[in-house]
């Protein structure tokens, strides 16, 4: 048997499907041919590796790492929500402020219209007294302390 023929029969040989006569011829060739021998032995060696499983042992920090990643992720998610929500919130607050300003303004406007009709003068006198009272008071205390 020549190498080419042996190559063709290698798979059957490894699967133990050769008849007795061919098997013997095959093995005879292997005895004399280093390269065919090496091919067969490497396939066998590699296949036995497939049955040998390397086992990893548990990582004592696995739970801590998982927990950290979950927590990390949830704060990141909050932060990204913040990024989206912040401009919306600011806009909302401004709108609320604007609306409140307009409605309060218009309320005062209405109120003052009503006041205007009856007690406008009185109201402005009261205001003046109050403001002046503050001014007097501060002068008085100033004088007292200086004493």
């Amino acid at each position: 048997m020549i190498c080419k023929e042996v190559h063709k029969k290698m798979n059957s040989y490894l699967s133990e499907k050769l008849n007795k006569a061919t098997f013997n011829e095959f093995e005879l060739h292997l005895k004399d041919c280093a390269s065919c021998r090496q091919i067969i032995s490497e396939v066998k060696n590699t296949m036995t590796l497939a049955d040998r499983t390397e086992e990893l042992s548990a990582d004592p920090f696995m739970f801590t790492r998982i927990q950290a990643q979950i927590e990390n992720r949830s704060t990141e998610r909050n932060r990204s929500w913040q990024k989206v929500l912040q401009p919306i919130a600011v806009t909302m607050i401004m709108l609320v402020g604007l609306f409140a300003g307009v409605s309060l303004g218009s309320k005062y406007y209405n109120d003052s219209l009503q006041l205007n009709a009856n007690e406008y003068v009185l109201e402005s006198e009261d205001e003046e007294i109050y403001l002046n009272a503050l001014a007097y008071e501060s002068i008085e205390t100033f004088l007292l302390t200086d004493n």
Partner: peptide, 17 residues
């Protein structure tokens, strides 16, 4: 397993002269 053996054979045939 059959296919692995075939692939490995092809590979080693190509790389062992």
């Amino acid at each position: 397993k059959v296919n692995l053996q075939k692939r490995l054979l092809d590979f080693y045939k190509n790389n062992i002269e």
